[in-house]
C-alpha cells in the first residue's frame, strides 16, 4: 500500500486542484486504473492506492510547472499549453507522455465581433501599425504572455501592450481593459457569448493533458522512478487499449489447430498476436472451441463477418481495458532523457 514506503522515497506527483484540468485529470487517472484517493476536499495531499509509493499533491494548475522546475514534485499532470508557457527550456523538466486525450483546448487570439475588417493575424499586424500611427496602443489581454508574445512577433504584430488582467479575460474587451484577448478555449462558446471572434489563423497552441517529470529529481530517487515507471506503463497500456476490443466467438471444429487455421484464413482476424483457442465442453458433445482475439477497432466488422462465415456462434465484444506492450516506449525514452541530462 502507498503508506508502506517512507515519505522520502515516494513519488511526489502534482495534479491540478482547480480549473478546467481538475476533473478531467482525475477521470483520466481513474480510467487508467489509478483512481486518486483524497481524504477530503480540503486536504491537498492524496494517494493512488493502486500504485505503491505515490504522494499526490493537489496544486493550482498554473503552479504545477513551477513546482516541477523547482523539483518540489518529481512528476505531474499538466496542460501542454501551461507547460510550454512556464517551463524552462533546456531545463530539468521533460514531457514523457503527450496528447493524453483529456483537457483538450486551444489558446487562440480573438477580437471583438464588431471588428468586421479584422479576420487574420495579418490584419492584426496592419492594425497595430495603424494604432501606433494614431497614438494608441493595441492592448492584448492574456494569461500566457510568453507564448502570446512569441506568436504575435512571429506574425509581425510588433506594437502592443499587455495589461495585467485578473479574472475573466473574455470580458476584458467589453470592460474596456483590452482590445483583444489571447485565451484558452475548448468550444468557443464563451468567446461567442462575449461577442468575440477567433482569427482564422489565430491558434497559438493546441493543448491536451500531458505527463511531465523532473529528470534530475527522478534520477536521484530510485523508488520514485519506479513509481513513475508504473504510472507511465499504466497510462500507455490504457492508451493502447483504446484502439482494441476483445472479440470472442464459439466456433465448431475438429481440433484447436483446425479452428485456428480457419480463423487465420483472414489476416486481420489474427488480432494483435493471434487467436487464443480453447475447447468448450458442451452437454451434447459437439466439438466447439472458444476463440478470442484482440482486435483493432478498425477491423471489428471484418472480423465479426469472418467469424460468422466460418460458423461462429454467440460472438461477444468487450473493451480491452489495458494492453501492455512488451516494453514501455515512453519509459525507455524517459531513461534516455535522464541519461542525457544527468549522466549515468
Amino acid at each position: 500500500m502507498s503508506t508502506s514506503a517512507p515519505p522520502s522515497a515516494r513519488l511526489r506527483l502534482a495534479i491540478p486542484s482547480d480549473g478546467a484540468m481538475y476533473e478531467p485529470t482525475l477521470a483520466f487517472l481513474a480510467a487508467c486504473g489509478m483512481a486518486v484517493s483524497r481524504p477530503n476536499a480540503r486536504r491537498y495531499v492524496g494517494s493512488i492506492p493502486a500504485v505503491e509509493g505515490v504522494e499526490v499533491m493537489f496544486q493550482r494548475a498554473r503552479d504545477i510547472t513551477g513546482h516541477m522546475e523547482a523539483a518540489n514534485a518529481h512528476a505531474g499532470f499538466v496542460g501542454y499549453d501551461d507547460f510550454q508557457e512556464r517551463r524552462v527550456e533546456g531545463g530539468d523538466t521533460e514531457i514523457v507522455l503527450q496528447d493524453l486525450g483529456f483537457g483538450r483546448c486551444e489558446l487562440v487570439a480573438a477580437v471583438p465581433e464588431a471588428w468586421v475588417d479584422v479576420e487574420s493575424m495579418a490584419d492584426l499586424a496592419d492594425l497595430a501599425v495603424e494604432f501606433r500611427e494614431s497614438g494608441r496602443e493595441l492592448r492584448i489581454a492574456t494569461k500566457a504572455q510568453r507564448l502570446a508574445r512569441r506568436f504575435l512577433f512571429s506574425h509581425g504584430v510588433n506594437y502592443f501592450s499587455m495589461p495585467q488582467v485578473s479574472g475573466a479575460l473574455e470580458a476584458a474587451p467589453a470592460m474596456g481593459h483590452a482590445d483583444i484577448i489571447i485565451d484558452v478555449t475548448a468550444t468557443g462558446a464563451t468567446l461567442r457569448e462575449n461577442r468575440l471572434k477567433r482569427l482564422v489563423d489565430g491558434v497559438v497552441i493546441r493543448s491536451e493533458g500531458c505527463f511531465v517529470v523532473n529528470l534530475r529529481a527522478l534520477a536521484a530517487a530510485p523508488a520514485a522512478l519506479e513509481a513513475a515507471r508504473e504510472i507511465v506503463e499504466r497510462v500507455e497500456a490504457h492508451r493502447r487499449a483504446e484502439g482494441y476490443l476483445r472479440v470472442t466467438a464459439n466456433i465448431e471444429g475438429a481440433s484447436e489447430a483446425a479452428v485456428a487455421a480457419k480463423v487465420l484464413e483472414r489476416g486481420e482476424a489474427a488480432g494483435l498476436r493471434g487467436p487464443t483457442v480453447s475447447p468448450v465442453f458442451t452437454a451434447d458433445g459437439g466439438s466447439w472451441h472458444a476463440v478470442t482475439v484482440l482486435a483493432h477497432r478498425a477491423n471489428l466488422t471484418a472480423i465479426v463477418d469472418h467469424f460468422r462465415a466460418i460458423g461462429g456462434a454467440s460472438v461477444t465484444i468487450s473493451e480491452a481495458g489495458y494492453v501492455f506492450g512488451q516494453e514501455s516506449g515512453a519509459y525507455r525514452r524517459l531513461l534516455a532523457a535522464m541519461e542525457r541530462r544527468c549522466g549515468s
Partner: peptide, 11 residues
C-alpha cells in the same frame, strides 16, 4: 455589428 463593443475603435 459594428455599433456594439468596438473598444478603442470607432465604427
Amino acid at each position: 455589428t459594428v455599433a456594439a463593443g468596438a473598444g478603442q475603435r470607432t465604427p
